[in-house]
Amino acid sequence: MSATLDDLDRRLLWALQDDLPLRERPFAVLAARLGVNEDEVLQRLRRYLAEGIVTRFGPFFQVERMGGAFCLAAMAVPEERFEEVAATVGAFPQVAHNYRREHALNMWFVLAATRPEGIAEVAWAIEDAVSLRVWLFPKEREYFVRLRLRP
């Protein structure tokens, strides 16, 4: 399901992973750097969102700085219940993303809360909703990286 990208798409998608300037016309700044016009940048960005090439364009919040928390969580979901459980888990707004992974623990998702206690609360609510144990893997330490995907 790889998207078909031209050379400008590749350069633009690379540049869009950088911090957008806090300027009146930030896309014009970006466009000038790439040697295209502002409208071209905006039209392409809208297309990326419509086609799912970019899932979101906006601020990345670091909720920990406000006392909130993220937590990686996993469950061992019986195969025959997988779709049903995925739908239930996905309906929780505190679930940021959810991946199937090939392991006994086959469903891995990220929980987000505005207070640290919120993580345990939503984990209990999920356990209650699906009758399966939620294993929490909170981060104890982050080793800083900044990967950008080369389109």
Binding site: L13, Q17, L20, G52
Partner: peptide, 10 residues
């Protein structure tokens, strides 16, 4: 609180 304003690529 805001790390950056940017695209989340798929």
């Amino acid at each position: 609180v805001i790390r950056r304003i940017a695209a989340a690529p798929n």
